[in-house]
Structures are given as C-alpha cells and as structure tokens.
Amino acid sequence: MEYTFTLKYQIVEPGTDLDELVERLGACGCDDALVGIGLPGRIALEFTREANSAKAAVVSALADVKQAIPTAKLIEAAPDLVGLTDVADVIGVSRQNMRKLMLSHATSFPTPVHEGSASVWHLAEVMAWLQARGAYEVDTSTLEVAQTTMQVNLAKEAEVRRLRPEMRRELRPLFA
C-alpha cells in the first residue's frame, strides 16, 4: 500500500550544499520523496512510500533521513496538527460543517492541542471521532498515517503519557 506523509526538518549544518544534501537523501532511500528546500535552514520531504503499514512507511522514512542527514532535527511529521479547514478538506466537507459539528458536540469533540484564534487538533483524533459517529466516510489509509504521525510528534515532544511504549523505543533513536 502507498502512504503519503511529510517530514519537516531543521538543518543544523551551516553552509550545507543543498544539491549535495538532496543527492545524499536519494542515495539513502528517499527517492520516493519530493524535497522542498525553500526556507533557509529547513527541508521538507513529502513521501509517497510503499509499505505494509503507515508505521512501517513513516519509521523507514525517518531512518532513511537520519542516515542521510544525521544532524537534522525533526520539526514535525504531517499530517497531524490541523485546523478545522484542514480537517474539512481531508473529510470532504465544508469548514462551516466542521465548525458546526465542533460547536454542537462540544463535550465529545476532541480537545484541541492549542485553542485560540486559530485552534489546532490532532487530525487522527478528529478523524477517529468522525469515524465513530458513522456519518462520515473516513479514509482508513489517511487515518492510519495521521495516527502514526501523531505518535511520531508525541515521541519528539516526549509526551510519554500518551505514547505507546513500542513506538517510544523504536522512534527515540531516530530523533536528533
């Protein structure tokens, strides 16, 4: 199965030759990723990776990047942190529909990671909530990727209270 996800990194090597960096990534197995080098000191890799599971796809991509750029620091694995517009796009409904759902189910709708003028949720939690309601078609591949990227980001942030032990053991060595 193919899984699509993005890994965003900070490049900590000053004066890194970006063309050489892209070559190293390709040589280390990241030839299934589109590489974005638009922001100074940052690199984003959008993978479309074949694997038996989303976890296998994401973990292997993390390992490949770590091999190619050992000093790179993971910023974020996506899709994970999203606003209502992002969720609406993934599910195929309007933002207004998502906002109405959130407001009318305030006690059961997933709690945002950040609440403010722009609130942010874990995509996996909102998708699982929508799936449990049964009224919305949730793409299981996207849900599996979102669950995996959420675990990666939680591991990165060391929120061990929500992180499954097997993911913590497997992911910790992959972070700079």
Rank of each mutant, 00 (worst) to 15 (best):
residue 35 V to K: 07
residue 108 S to A: 11
residue 109 F to N: 05
residue 64 D to P: 00
residue 145 V to S: 07
residue 9 Y to W: 09
residue 114 H to G: 07
residue 86 D to E: 15
residue 160 V to G: 12
residue 98 M to Q: 10
residue 89 D to I: 02
residue 3 Y to I: 01
residue 130 L to C: 14
residue 159 E to T: 11
residue 57 A to I: 10
residue 16 T to I: 15
residue 157 E to N: 14
residue 165 P to A: 12
residue 27 A to P: 01
residue 58 V to L: 09
residue 36 G to M: 04
residue 38 G to D: 13
residue 21 L to R: 00
residue 26 G to M: 00
residue 164 R to Y: 11
residue 156 K to C: 01
residue 21 L to V: 08
residue 21 L to G: 00
residue 65 V to P: 02
residue 100 K to V: 08
residue 155 A to H: 00
residue 3 Y to P: 04
residue 32 D to E: 10
residue 151 Q to V: 04
residue 152 V to Q: 03
residue 174 L to R: 07
residue 78 A to I: 00
residue 43 I to A: 14
residue 93 V to I: 15
residue 59 V to W: 07
residue 138 V to K: 04
residue 85 T to W: 01
residue 172 R to E: 15
residue 38 G to Q: 12
residue 129 W to F: 15
residue 170 E to S: 11
residue 156 K to N: 13
residue 16 T to S: 07
residue 122 H to I: 00
residue 141 S to Q: 13
residue 16 T to Q: 14
residue 31 D to A: 14
residue 150 M to Y: 00
residue 109 F to V: 08
residue 155 A to V: 01
residue 116 G to W: 09
residue 35 V to W: 03
residue 100 K to I: 05
residue 172 R to Q: 14
residue 142 T to Y: 03
residue 80 D to V: 02
residue 114 H to I: 14
residue 90 V to K: 06
residue 63 A to T: 01
residue 16 T to L: 15
residue 80 D to K: 03
residue 165 P to F: 04
residue 59 V to G: 00
residue 110 P to V: 11
residue 57 A to N: 13
residue 88 A to C: 02
residue 90 V to Y: 07
residue 151 Q to I: 03
residue 41 G to F: 04
residue 103 L to F: 11
residue 70 P to Q: 07
residue 109 F to K: 10
residue 50 E to R: 15
residue 80 D to Q: 01
residue 18 L to S: 03
residue 106 A to R: 13
residue 172 R to Y: 12
residue 88 A to K: 02
